[in-house]
Design a binder for these strands. Sequence first.
DNA 1: ACAGTTGGTTGTAGTCGTACAACTAATTGA
DNA 2: TCAATTAGTTGTACGACTACAACCAACTGT
Lengths: 149, 149
Amino acid sequence: MRTEPTVATSPEETAGRVWRGLRALVLERHERRKEVCDALGMSFIRVKALRRLAAGPRTMRDLAADLIIDAPYTTVVVDDLERRGLVAREVHPADRRSKIVKVTPEGERAARRADEILSVPPPVILALPAGDLAALDRIVTGLLGTEGP
Amino acid sequence: MRTEPTVATSPEETAGRVWRGLRALVLERHERRKEVCDALGMSFIRVKALRRLAAGPRTMRDLAADLIIDAPYTTVVVDDLERRGLVAREVHPADRRSKIVKVTPEGERAARRADEILSVPPPVILALPAGDLAALDRIVTGLLGTEGP
DNA sequence: ACAGTTGGTTGTAGTCGTACAACTAATTGA
DNA sequence: TCAATTAGTTGTACGACTACAACCAACTGT
């Protein structure tokens, strides 16, 4: 496998180019937000909330922290999802102030649908030679592993 | 260099995992929008407009197409950038209806500043082994090349 | 027991972006 | 020449998100 630099040699420069490239790929060429929002008929923050909740029930407080939105707006978002029958609030057994928000079966389906849309890789990635795809897979997995959760 | 799949073997599955990983990396872990907006004191669409114009003068119409916003809002955005002294409108020599928008020297500086912020790669990418970084560079460059401009 | 804190809700106000309608000025084509 | 089109501007209305203030109910520590 060729590993010579594409243009520049300095690691900083290369890393910068790689990063700009990744941003272009994800943000400029293959943004799927509109697509999911249209498909589910809701704003992206609601989609994010739904997917987050599908990953596991959470309190309002934790959901707010995950989405980086404040408590009042979390109420608005969850109210809306609840009205649609996609999530349900339950009182926390150990703290009656707190609510645990769970996805309903229908919410589960909607979240999975969103995941599917967001997961569809752009054709260029699918068209990658097997070796490159495997290398990319290994590197990206590593990049995610060495960070946060 | 190891090229064995990280988990699954099917190319579709691998491509899906890679794509989700790239999205997570760019959108969830290292979103720089807020940072640039704070630094330049303007909304992200204005930053986008400025960077686009810094890449070369354009008519209002073309700028609107680039940013995927409608004509009236383009006027609002360019008005704002012009009030800040970052861009200037000139009448198109061959069509007096049309305006050509150019960045001023100050606009040029602001755009470069935005580029710098957006280009700073996350530490994990900088920490990549030289071989992986080179491979990533080559693959990403290829991915961008096989698509649009 | 009770002051202080926390989880959640309600309401209000402001910004940002989207979508139209309506208009002027300039250009184009029959 | 003149109707139709195009480039840009102005204005208006709306939805989505942000940020506060104020509030209630429930919990905590002393």
